[in-house]
Design a protein around this nucleic acid. Structure first.
Lengths: 244, 244
DNA sequence: GTGGTCATCGGGGTTTCCCCGCATGCCAAA
DNA sequence: TTTGGCATGCGGGGAAACCCCGATGACCAC
């Protein structure tokens, strides 16, 4: 099986020996990518890969046994289980810093990751050096985000006055949340208007306000987030049975 | 741009010199993965990376200039135009062997890739050595497929039709599936048109055809299904990691 | 070559989106 | 109490998207 790869064992015997290298665990279901990141990291004097894992279960045991300073995890290990893993890790090892590596667009998953306890979010499309930058930033206890997203999140925080953890969805009014939910269930503007016995214009107004509060630019983004939210709500609990 | 990485320049002067190494070009939008595959390949005596590219356009120029024997391409380049690129490559360089590397479940894309001219299909979840196996097999003019999929395809050929999981999505053409996928990733009509360098009208046409084939009535429904599908694809892909 | 699908676009009408403004009503701080 | 903010409801008008047509090649199969 995937017995830990050749590159993991780096003897501290080179001229520029690693005195107290930062210990890193990589969690990703793509062996090729693990190899790439591992190589990249082990080329650095102050960084060192001490473990790899390809799924959530192996990740926890790997962390337990190798005691890393940072975990670099891909949250798209089978959809939701990525965020789940992140939560589990933070529950068991609260002091462990976690940098999330994802192939998906930040706008959808980044804030979920941060809320789940991640210290940073970086996309696989990013240049390799950015990964090192992010790792070091996270190590210093700072949060790594892309320029674009960082600005946007600050914006949300300022505009929505929500403290670190709260989702901007909290800022929606009752009516807005209702509309948002209907959008997420796949209804268009007109059907929503009819269902609520309101003018189409009113629904448009609500949509605009929702976009504003959630910091979204286009209608497509709105729909995307709405569907995402409805989905996650369904997962979160059966206790949220407020039908109709 | 991505001038071939440190390890790419391997002078043929080592004891075990590369006499006639197979020349390989890697096309993938994840720098980290390119690094991983590149390292893996350059560790082999008979293989050698002679070029990298991160998108379709760069891929064609890279192939043109470096004249590889094999191209290893990811068909999910930014979620788009992977199959298109494959077709273009085979149109311009018919004799070039192409091995498709994908993070998606084989069952959806593999046969499309083969029909488009690929000589093999391998998933990123596969073990690293499998990539080498696949490369060498493709080099010998054979077709590489996973055990599971190979059997299934034979089955399909003999039996006439796919066994059970025939989703209506199978009915979509390559281009349509591409557009469908982009919709599912949250992109609007215009951005898709720009990304694919096509007229907005063309995308609208594709959307219409997709709706027809999937039996959808409204645009909202289309978006809803597309997002749903992209989501489920990710889960399926990850769970299919336990091949063999 | 005839018929099929694909992929690409256009015309033109309908709908939605989006950026404005405007009204009411409520609630809370000044 | 006055002021201001916010929620809720609606409208106008222009831009964009959507939708129902048709058209052109290109390719593949029979």
């Amino acid at each position: 099986m995937k017995t830990s790869p050749s590159s993991a064992a780096v003897p501290a015997s080179v001229s520029t020996a690693k005195k107290n290298p930062t210990r890193i665990v990589i969690v990703d279901d793509h062996p090729l990518l693990r190899k790439g990141v591992g190589q990249l990291i082990n080329n650095e004097k102050d960084l060192m890969v001490v473990g790899e894992a390809e799924d959530a279960a192996k990740a926890l045991t790997a962390i337990e046994s190798s005691r890393p300073d940072v975990a670099l995890i891909d949250i798209s290990l089978g959809g939701a289980s990525g965020i789940e893993l992140l939560k589990n890790i933070k529950a068991r090892f609260p002091k462990l810093q976690v940098l999330v590596l994802s192939m998906h667009d930040e706008s959808v998953y980044a804030h979920r990751a941060l809320r789940a306890g991640a210290s940073g979010y970086i996309m696989k499309q990013e240049a390799t050096e950015k990964v090192l930058t992010a790792l070091r930033k996270v190590l210093r206890g700072e949060v790594y985000l892309s320029e674009r997203l960082g600005a946007r999140m600050l914006n949300t925080l300022v505009g929505g006055r929500s403290p670190s953890g709260t989702s901007p969805i909290e800022a929606l009014s009752d009516r807005e949340l209702e509309v948002f939910s209907l959008i997420g269930q796949g209804h268009g503007t007109r059907p929503i208007a009819e269902k609520l016995h309101l003018s189409v214009k009113t629904i448009e107004s609500h949509r605009a306000h929702i976009k504003e509060k959630l910091n979204l630019q286009t209608a497509t983004e709105l729909v995307h987030h709405a569907i995402q939210w409805v989905q996650s709500e369904r997962v979160v609990g059966a206790e949220a049975a407020h039908s109709e």
